[in-house]
Write a protein that binds this DNA or RNA. Sequence first.
DNA 1: CAATAGATGATAATTCTTCTCAAATAACAA
DNA 2: TTGTTATTTGAGAAGAATTATCATCTATTG
Lengths: 149, 149
Amino acid sequence: MTQADTRGFRDLCGRTGIAVTHQRQVLYEVMQGMEGHPSPEEVYARVRKRIPSISLATVYKNLHLFIECGIFREVSFHHGSLRVEMNDRPHHHLVCTTCRAIADVEEEELGAVIHRSGQTPEKLPGGFLAERFAIDILGRCVACQARNQ
Amino acid sequence: MTQADTRGFRDLCGRTGIAVTHQRQVLYEVMQGMEGHPSPEEVYARVRKRIPSISLATVYKNLHLFIECGIFREVSFHHGSLRVEMNDRPHHHLVCTTCRAIADVEEEELGAVIHRSGQTPEKLPGGFLAERFAIDILGRCVACQARNQ
DNA sequence: CAATAGATGATAATTCTTCTCAAATAACAA
DNA sequence: TTGTTATTTGAGAAGAATTATCATCTATTG
């Protein structure tokens, strides 16, 4: 870790108003060096190489903190549990990043159109065979706006 | 439940190759009558009014079965656990519906463009305040195609 | 109607996440 | 620095969500 990196993290904490702790700093650095979409356990395994005594609870707490502060992002903003939908008309989802409520929007109501070269299914980079699109519009529902949360 | 409904469900089972059981039929009917994105517990609560002895395990098994058969759809096809991403460039996700692997696609690489009236944040139907879009391309990754799963 | 493949119900087990709280550490003012 | 206060940490218990197990029961098929 260079002096510049340390400075960067301290500045980041200053801006977001969180305390600079050793665990937090190492977590941040380790995560910056990871690719893809790691789970808390994967992050924990990596950080333990540098701080063997770190607790999994600390990892969870700081992941949430980093997400709240906008330092990193959560991949799926949906409910933590299985959700099923019966609506078979083409639609997408309004997902509230505060209360996680999900509402449907009809495709035309959304006022957004996806333009693609061909028709699904089609091959995408890496040979991925696309079957359908799902669009989430992330933001804040009226209730949470009113609550000013 | 009308005769037509019963007929419809029997046909559906015939086509998808699953057995017609009382529990399955009631589950199907109850779910058809539900709106939004119910959780297994919510479905369970409703079905228990008609079959008080039904088991939560049966609800779970049949939800998965209905999803597999394409009768209903799962709202979020992501991993069951928290995932974080550090990639801060504009990108979207290729989500494999078989193994649930998630890969990034750069926005331009996707060959899809979202056309909207204004700039985010903007107000959508219902007063929802949109902050950003997340697009999932659902399909099958190369590995799962090769495995012919 | 009998044989059998598949489904169900009850509950144990597992996985993932959050909570609790005493001890340790950081921030701040003097 | 040094003391005071607020925050964070670590360890494990607790909780929530989901899956596994298996004996019993039911649907399917001929």
